[in-house]
């Protein structure tokens, strides 16, 4: 599903440069649910961004679903992102002047799907996250948990192979966090591959595998027994 070999990334800071990722090797199989952990500055977000094609590695190999991701043109990267990846962000990143339905339909618009079709599909995904009744509300009229569910519906809309979540519960209270995690677990149960960045231990334990990063290298990569989030809801 996902194969990363000897990945390096550094950022220029004035004259010198900051070496953020120092040779990462990671392999993720289909259906896995992986938490990437580490303190801030460990390079976990950078890794996720490179996997998400939001950022580019300096050297190393990255193969996604058999496709080498290297020297992509902007246009090609856009197509790949749309086709392969679904994003869930800490701050939801919904477009504030579009209602829930329109936000969910946006990736489908970039796929070139017809209006009627994409609205039906978007509605289907909103029903799945339990927000069918809120379809015509703007993000500011929804709670944080609801907004994150809209974002999840949007990430799912284009039926991506890989779901990337950057601190998906970072902006939510504990109860809501568990609700969202229960939902993400359910998606994984259905077969979605999920990669998640978090710094919260209890959230990481709700995944099936934890990759710990420190100073740009993988410190530990272990399979864990998944803690089900439903029990807290």
């Amino acid at each position: 599903m996902l194969e990363i070999k000897n990945l390096h990334k550094s950022y220029p800071i004035g004259d010198s440069s900051l070496h953020v990722l120092k040779g990462i090797n990671l392999s993720v199989e289909e259906g896995e649910m992986v938490a990437i952990m580490g303190s801030s500055g460990s390079g976990k977000s950078t890794l996720l961004n490179i996997i998400g094609m939001l950022d580019e590695a300096d050297s190393g190999e990255y193969i996604l679903d058999g496709l080498p991701i290297k020297n992509l043109t902007e246009k090609k990267a856009a197509v790949y992102r749309n086709k392969f990846l679904g994003f869930i962000f800490q701050s939801f990143n919904l477009i504030n002047y579009k209602n829930a339905l329109e936000n969910v339909a946006l990736p489908l618009y970039y796929q070139g799907m017809k209006r009627k079709e994409r609205q039906e599909l978007a509605m289907f995904h909103l029903e799945k996250v339990g927000l069918a009744n809120w379809a015509h509300h703007l993000p500011k009229e929804l709670s944080g948990g609801q907004n994150q569910r809209v974002a999840i519906a949007r990430a799912l809309a284009a039926n991506p192979k890989l779901l990337l979540a950057d601190e998906p519960t970072g902006a939510l209270d504990t109860t809501t966090s568990h609700e969202i995690m229960a939902f993400i677990q359910q998606l994984n149960d259905e077969g979605k591959t999920i990669l998640m960045v978090t710094h919260e231990e209890d959230i990481a334990n709700m995944c099936k595998r934890i990759v710990r990063l420190r100073d740009g290298v993988i410190l530990e990569d272990v399979k864990v027994t998944q803690v089900r989030a439903e029990q807290y809801v």
Partner: peptide, 9 residues
């Protein structure tokens, strides 16, 4: 956001 969702430049 649009770029993350697959918008071309």
């Amino acid at each position: 956001i649009r770029k993350a969702l697959g918008a071309t430049p």
